[in-house]
Design a protein around this nucleic acid. Structure first.
Lengths: 214, 214
DNA sequence: AGGTGTGAACACTTTCACAGCA
DNA sequence: TGCTGTGAAAGTGTTCACACCT
């Protein structure tokens, strides 16, 4: 069924879905590629190309049925199920993520939290999940049928934790550690690196200033 | 001076720099494009292309002088100065970011924190910065000569806050709100969106499974 | 030999422009 | 007329392959 879909297309699909959800469209409402493009900060042609990669579900002369389009996007993105997520690392980032209610609402359920700090192990978070010893990583991942792990440990521990999760069968990793994780081909890693984003800003600012003179 | 440098090149430069810094190279140490590529998860040709966009500072047969290369990268990325950052939004994400010491070490100094919650305004964070009322945004940004703002407020408030920061002269925005900020051409925005990253994982996992059957 | 710097080939993405349906 | 769907054209980014220096 699937051609090769680019990373950027997937990112935009996620964005389109968020836009549609924010509108909580009344039944029957329609949306055009021009609409979506304006809000997503891209072009109408881009929106149509992205969507047409998965079939043609627009009506010529009208646009897309907003509700149907949202459903279709959820289906394409694999969001019709609940993903079971384990959070590895109960530090600042970990706890901020855990408290971020949007995950749960969007189908990512944090079913386990692990850390190696004895002061944290055994404590209960939000009266729901107990922090467990990362020592027992494999057991926890299996017991909870975890699909995805969030790596929120220091860089020095990240590769080991990732290796163990992969060995335990995990195929998706959201990585907050500032290094490139080495994983087998069939494992998908997404990186979040705020320092890199800031450095990209720094680059832009430094070189934007130069635009006038060059 | 500057040709058009792609977003992806800049991201990789940041990564190369981090790799070099992690090695705390002894003076005189050298590093080859093959080395860097292996650790960064890219190809040697890519590394050389990226670096050659800014001049030729490698030695044929030898590689790059690690220390010099790191210096050059910092210069290219505009990291030879300290960037003054204001954090708008003192919620979960905001506080996690504030506590993340790496920023300061890397030249991003959070000089102001703003929020609209009366319970937070006036409190001191890390005995260093006092949370101020977002009401006075413009005054604070000017007083502190802020270069970059981090937008960590709910989506509903993000565009307004961004507009006000831009009007006050800010040219760089790190955006954590899940929407596309509208800004003038000469303002650079970098987005961090964890939900999109998770949805990209969800997409990959859903479609990797299919590879066998298709 | 070993490893850089780079034009030229290739692959991928975005934009254009228009045929075709509601 | 209005707006989608899509081949073809244009534009960007990556990989190849090799001349050249140490």
């Amino acid at each position: 069924m699937s051609r090769k879909i680019s990373e950027s297309t997937v990112r935009r699909l996620s964005q389109y879905l968020r836009i549609l959800e924010a509108r909580e469209a009344r039944p029957g409402a329609t949306v055009s590629s021009t609409d979506l493009a304006a809000e997503a900060g891209t072009t109408a042609a881009q929106v149509r190309k992205d969507l047409s990669l998965f079939g043609s579900f627009g009506k010529r002369g009208l646009g897309y049925a907003a509700g149907d389009l949202a459903d279709r996007l959820r289906e394409i993105l694999g969001l019709e199920r609940v993903w079971r997520v384990a959070l590895i690392g109960a530090g600042r980032i970990g706890s901020a993520l855990f408290e971020y209610a949007d995950f749960r609402r969007r189908g990512f359920d944090i079913v386990a939290v692990l850390d190696n700090d004895p002061g944290k192990i055994g404590t209960e978070w939000s009266g729901a999940v107990e922090v467990e010893d990362v020592e027992g990583l494999e057991v926890v991942l299996q017991r909870e049928s975890v699909d995805v792990v969030i790596v929120a440990v220091p860089a020095s521990a990240a590769q080991e934790v990732s290796d163990r999760a992969v060995t335990a069968g995990v195929r998706g990793i959201l990585n907050f550690a500032p290094l490139q994780l080495r994983v087998p081909e069939d494992v998908s890693v997404q990186d979040v690196n705020v320092v890199t984003e800031l450095e990209a800003l720094s680059f832009d600012l430094t070189h934007l200033h130069a635009t006038g003179t060059d």
